[in-house]
């Protein structure tokens, strides 16, 4: 564990909590892409299957349970509890355009052709594109509420910090995970455009529609 990874995990947790609290407090999921949240729940489900088979550390186990619980809670709030405020009109990104290439790639590029490894690889590739429906929705509605931009900021920051973590681990322990690094860089690149808007335009973001 290093400071970059810890900061990354904290940033990730903060992002998830920001979104969950926003929906819970405002009793509405307007402007939130339910499709992205379903994809994130799928990412955690396919990545944390080793929760019951491999014990790495208390931190690792606790964080996996927390991420799974919070992501399913978010999906539940969007599609069940506050479904009447779900903006299905604008949440129309074709997720099959993400799932099919990701499934194909995870069968082609993986460390081992075993169910657990392929599902882990699937979750790594899927995570890099899971935010697309949300970014698509923002361009479609032409705006993002300030809290949503904070959510996206911390979500983008988390994977950027993981890149620093991979550089650090490469130099200190010779560790590198090629699939995670390539996918993590792609994921962070998707946020660059948003980071620019977030920094230059402050909280409210209006995308040039």
């Amino acid at each position: 564990m290093n400071i970059f990874r810890l900061a990354g995990d904290v940033s990730h947790l903060v992002a998830i909590l920001i979104l969950l609290m926003k929906i819970w407090r405002s009793k509405s999921c307007a402007g939130i892409s339910g499709r992205s949240q379903v994809l994130f729940a799928l990412v955690f489900t396919t990545r944390y299957l080793d929760l019951f088979t491999v014990y790495i550390s208390a931190y690792n186990t606790v964080m996996k349970v927390v991420f799974l619980a919070l992501s399913y809670a978010t999906v539940y709030l969007i599609y069940m509890r506050f479904r009447n405020s779900y903006d299905s009109e604008n949440d129309t990104f074709r997720v099959e355009f993400l799932l099919i290439p990701v499934i194909g790639l995870s069968f082609l590029e993986n460390y081992a052709f075993t169910p657990l490894e392929i599902l882990w690889t699937f979750s790594i590739f899927l995570e890099s594109v899971a935010i697309m429906p949300q970014l698509f929705m923002i361009t479609k509605t032409g705006e993002a509420e300030s809290i949503t931009t904070h959510y996206l900021f911390f979500l983008g920051l988390y994977r950027a910090l993981y890149i620093a973590n991979w550089v650090w681990r490469y130099h200190t322990e010779g560790f590198y995970d090629q699939i995670a690094i390539v996918s993590g860089v792609v994921q962070t690149i998707f946020y660059c455009d948003f980071f620019y808007l977030y920094v230059t335009r402050g909280e409210e973001i209006r995308t040039p529609s």
Binding site: R5, D9, H12, D50, V54, I56, S57, N60, M63, K64, F67, Y111, A112, E117, W120, Y162, N165, Y170, G174, F175, Y176, D177, Q178, A180
Partner: peptide
């Protein structure tokens, strides 16, 4: 350098 497959990262 090795591709560690130990999934210790979240």
């Amino acid at each position: 350098l090795q591709d560690s497959h130990l999934k210790d990262e979240l």
